[in-house]
Design a protein around this nucleic acid. Structure first.
Length: 431
DNA sequence: GACTGTTTATACTATA
DNA sequence: TATAGTATAAACAGTC
């Protein structure tokens, strides 16, 4: 299983652990967090761990911070950050389901010491042993890079971030990613470039700096409509980009291939390892047809023009001062069942949407155990946030290696896996 | 030179 | 079993 592989990475990492360092896990942590992760597949039926994880960590929170909370210099919200939201969410049901993760994650190997591997005893040890609890800290989060990027972008007020801000968000949120940065950051860059759901937004002259902003494609909102942040059911494809790829792939296309990168592109998007996935080849659905442009006549300039128009719309879309409700509605697009009529119509119009599988088990965006909506700050969760603010006995500020400028994230994030609040079942959380 | 972005390649896993 | 989605590595070019 993918998840098993993900967590095996943590196992490897932990072998060189230094128990004294907040950045490195202890062996017990490692053994707990990595081994025998139960088949955390994406089905809600099997998501006891996943749901707690999501309840704690999913982005949903993302963002929906329309209540005047301050933003960090990085651009994403502080107290309204996913972490604070998720902690708030967890606060509603403290220690509700430590066993949903702890029992399975550890008991299979029984490497907590002692022969008793019963769920109850493991749970008791977990409660008594902070080191044990800290094992979550450096487990690889069960989110794909795509979902991590999505979290970061959606959590930013402007709904777009630079590459470095995306890095920072991920590192603040998940201590796991403070290590081996070259490796995962390369993957992040690859994901940004390769996936059409991420669009590059050029910097404006008043915002000089390195690199572009990255944002989400306006039509990519339901990538994770099944609530699974490990793997999308269907990869979002920008029809325009796809059209370019197809045009270039076609042996008859007349686009000048003198540009080496375009040559590469035509290779890349051929039928090799990165196969063209489910391209809707119905000509009625192609942008070229919609615009009465024959695909073979579409050159790069035309496509760039089209795309720039799209980007303008996109930027306008993000520059709108969206209300909390609007933002929530946007997030609600994650599940077709919760779409507004407008969105339904839009999806109906979007040929890509036809491929998307409907959630078979009756979950909606609001009650799906993986749904980011579960993390949206409700009135109840806001009360939880206040309660969290009043509770300092958990010592959330003790471990972060990050500077104070990002401490508001990092401290929470550091203990995100540690806290008993982290273990909250989907069925009991208030969000 | 470091960072950013693109592309290619390959391996693994989940799913139809 | 074929296909698709993702992770990872690496090479390379462009930009700051």
């Amino acid at each position: 299983m993918l998840t098993q592989k993900l967590y095996s990475d943590s196992t490897t990492m932990a072998t060189s652990s230094n128990a004294m360092s907040p950045m490195t896990p202890t062996y017990s942590m490692n053994s707990m967090s990595c081994v025998s992760m139960p088949s955390m597949n994406c089905s809600p039926q099997a998501a006891s761990f996943g749901s707690s994880m999501l309840n704690s960590g999913m982005p949903g929170g993302m963002a929906m911070n329309g209540n005047g909370m301050t933003s960090s210099s990085m651009g994403y919200t502080t107290i309204g950050s996913p972490i604070s939201n998720m902690n708030a969410a967890c606060m509603a049901t403290p220690m509700a389901t430590m066993n949903s993760y702890g029992s399975v994650g550890t008991l299979g190997r029984g490497d907590l010491g002692g022969g008793d591997t019963s769920p109850n005893s493991a749970l008791q040890r977990a409660r008594a042993d902070k080191t044990y609890r800290r094992s979550y800290t450096h487990a690889k989060p069960p989110y794909s890079y795509i979902s991590l990027i999505t979290m970061a972008i959606q959590n930013s007020p402007q709904k777009m971030l630079t590459l470095s801000e995306i890095y920072q968000f991920i590192m603040d949120l998940f201590p796991f990613y403070r290590q081996n940065q070259q490796r995962w950051q390369n993957s992040i860059r690859h994901s940004l470039s390769f996936n059409d759901c991420f669009v590059k937004v050029p910097r404006t002259p008043d915002k000089p700096g390195k690199g572009s902003f990255w944002s989400l494609h306006p039509d990519s909102g339901n990538m994770f409509e099944n609530g699974c942040y490990l793997r999308r059911q269907k990869r979002f494809k920008d029809e325009k980009k796809e059209l370019i790829r197809q045009t270039h792939k076609s042996p008859s296309h007349s686009v000048d291939n003198s540009n080496s990168s375009e040559k590469k592109s035509s290779i890349q998007h051929g039928d090799d390892a990165h196969k063209t996935h489910h391209l809707d080849k119905n000509p009625e659905n192609t942008l070229g047809t919609m615009l009465s442009i024959h695909p073979s006549k579409l050159d790069v300039e035309q496509m760039n023009l089209l795309h720039s128009n799209d980007l303008n719309m996109h930027q306008q879309h993000h520059q709108q001062n969206m209300s909390h409700e609007e933002l929530s509605a946007m997030v609600n697009r994650c599940h077709p069942l919760s779409l507004s009529s407008d969105h339904q119509a839009m999806l109906h119009h979007n040929p890509m949407s036809h491929h998307l599988k409907q959630e078979p088990s009756g979950f909606t965006s609001s009650n799906h155990p993986f749904s980011i909506n579960r993390l949206l700050p409700t009135a109840e969760s806001k009360a939880d946030i206040k309660m969290y603010a009043d509770m300092h006995q958990y010592g959330y500020n003790t471990l972060s290696p990050l500077p104070s400028s990002v401490h508001s994230h990092s401290t929470i994030g550091n203990d995100y896996y540690n806290s008993p609040l982290y273990h909250t079942s989907a069925g009991t959380t208030s969000l």
